[in-house]
Structure formats: structure tokens, C-alpha cells
Design a protein around this nucleic acid. Structure first.
Lengths: 147, 147
DNA sequence: GTTAATGATTAACATGGTTAACGATGTCGA
DNA sequence: TCGACATCGTTAACCATGTTAATCATTAAC
């Protein structure tokens, strides 16, 4: 009967969910970092660029929850690899607009496909019922994340 | 009919799951990094120590998927904060055994409680059916991660 | 038109990862 | 038993990436 010894069901669910999401997330992230000549950071920023389209340094900093100098540096690296380009905003000369090149976009998509392939394989090893459970859970997880 | 335009269901599930798990995982991790005087790294290593009990540097390196010098450095930091202790292994003088102090353990538990509180609150905002879905999904996610 | 605010960059520093080299300890076969 | 080799951890040197503070260029405001 003591709440100290046996936590309430709501805490229990929270704990299980945290453990499982953190662990699978870590696994997917490792997959991410495994290859390509890029660092995780560069790949992540490139992914944001593909998703949002051309963006200012400030926008990117906000999305990546990082200070602007960190973006400046990573963009430079991407530029020197020929994966991104920087141009002055014609409407406001203070702003720098960053965009992916065609090769940058290709790399992001290839990486995503690679990770999906890994996950597809793991999913194929589950039972149909387990897959149904996951399909139902995915939107709920998104809702949680965006809450 | 074209697989290029409409991906097969298995890929679709993989994509949805990747997106949702990555996003919620990121959110939980941010929660993690938000406070306490510790860096995410230090907190993570301290967490491993609480989970595994006293461990050698090599063990920790393997668990954290990192090279030994990285562990040495973080352990030094934890030591100087009074959260971990290092002693020579009496059975093998080459090995260093690392253990948490009482305060180290307290910090890990407090951090975990904090993250659980956040998640419990978010979970309370869901419907009973959604919570059932998540409860069913948690073990499947673990299975995936450990595959 | 001068002054203030804003966006980005540069500079200087901290943290945490890597590999290479080394020192101390343990193991094993001649 | 003792010399060669293997193993564990640390140190050193380097790289990537975050931070804050200072600066430059541009825009906005009075």
C-alpha cells in the first residue's frame, strides 16, 4: 500500500515509456552517426535545411536550440563540402540565407533511407499484432513530443 | 502502383516510428540537460554507475560506447565534484574500479524523478485509450531497441 | 542624420570525443 | 623463474562543437 515502495501506475507508465523511447532513440541515432563523411551535427543541420528550405542563420539557431555562432561554423563546414550555400538576403542585408545544394539534399535522403531500412528489417521480425500496436502508438508519441 | 511515389506500408510504419521516437527522445533528453550543475555526459555516466554498481573504466567505456580516455576524464570530473570515487581493484592492480558516492546516487534519482514528473503530466493529458496504446507499445519498443 | 537595435561573424574559451604513446601490472611458455 | 607479450588505464596532442563577449554592417527610429 505504500506509494514509496510501489509507485502509482501513472509513474510506472512514464518510467517504462522513458526507458524504451530513450533506448530506441539512442539506437536510431547511432545508426545516424555511423557513416557518411559527415558528423552528426552537419547531417542534422542539413536535414533541417531540407525540411524547411532556405533559412536564415537565426532561424536555424532557434530550430537547433543553439546559439548563432554554432550555426555559422557548421554552415561553413557544409559550404566547404559543397553541400550548402550562403547568400545575402536581398531584402535585409544583415541576414544570411542558407540553402542546401542538390548533393546536400541527396545525402539527407540517402541517410534517411538507410535508417529506414534498418528499422524495416527489425519491424519485420515482430508479430503482426506487435506492429499494430506500434502503428497505433506512433501518433500518440508525436502528440506527447509536441505537447 | 508505383513504389517510388507511395512507399509500402512497412516503410511507412518505419518512418512514422522513427520520427515520433526521435522527437520524443530529443524532448526527454533536453529535459535531462536542463538543470543540475552537471553536464549531460556526467549525468549519463553517473546513471550507468547507479544502475551497474561499481565498475571498471573498461566496462564503462563499453557501455557508453566510448574510448577509455573519455571515461577517465569524466570520472575525474565526477570525483572532483564528490559524486564518484575511484579505487584500485584488489584482485588486479591494472584495473580502476569506479563507484558513486551517496550524493551521486541522490542526484541521479532526483533527476529521474524530475523527468518522470514531466512525462506523467503529459500522459495525464491523454485519453485512457491513448495511454493503453502506449502501455502496450513500451515493451515492443524495448524489444526493437535491443534487437 | 545621428543614434539605437538587430543579424551575423570573429575571437577566446570549455567540454568531450579521438588516436598514439607510455607505464604498471598480469600471464604464459621456454 | 624469468623474459616476452598482453592488457588496463592514463597522459598528451588534436579535433569538433558548444558557449559568451566584442565587433561589423545594416536597418529602424526619433
Amino acid at each position: 500500500m505504500s506509494t514509496a515502495e510501489r509507485p502509482p501506475a501513472s509513474t510506472r507508465l512514464a518510467q517504462d515509456l522513458r526507458r524504451s523511447v530513450m533506448r530506441l532513440g539512442r539506437r536510431l541515432r547511432q545508426m545516424h552517426e555511423e557513416n557518411l563523411g559527415l558528423t552528426a551535427n552537419q547531417l542534422s543541420l542539413l536535414g533541417v535545411l531540407v525540411k524547411l528550405g532556405p533559412s536564415t542563420v537565426g532561424d536555424l539557431a532557434e530550430v537547433e536550440k543553439v546559439q548563432p555562432p554554432a550555426i555559422t561554423r557548421t554552415v561553413k563546414a557544409l559550404e566547404s563540402l559543397g553541400l550548402a550555400e550562403r547568400t545575402a538576403d536581398p531584402e535585409d542585408g544583415r541576414r544570411s540565407v542558407v540553402a542546401t545544394t542538390g548533393r546536400g539534399r541527396e545525402i539527407v535522403l540517402a541517410d534517411r533511407r538507410r535508417r529506414d531500412r534498418w528499422l524495416v528489417k527489425r519491424l519485420a521480425e515482430l508479430s503482426p499484432e506487435e506492429r499494430r500496436v506500434l502503428a497505433a502508438a506512433a501518433p500518440v508519441l508525436l502528440k506527447l513530443a509536441d505537447a
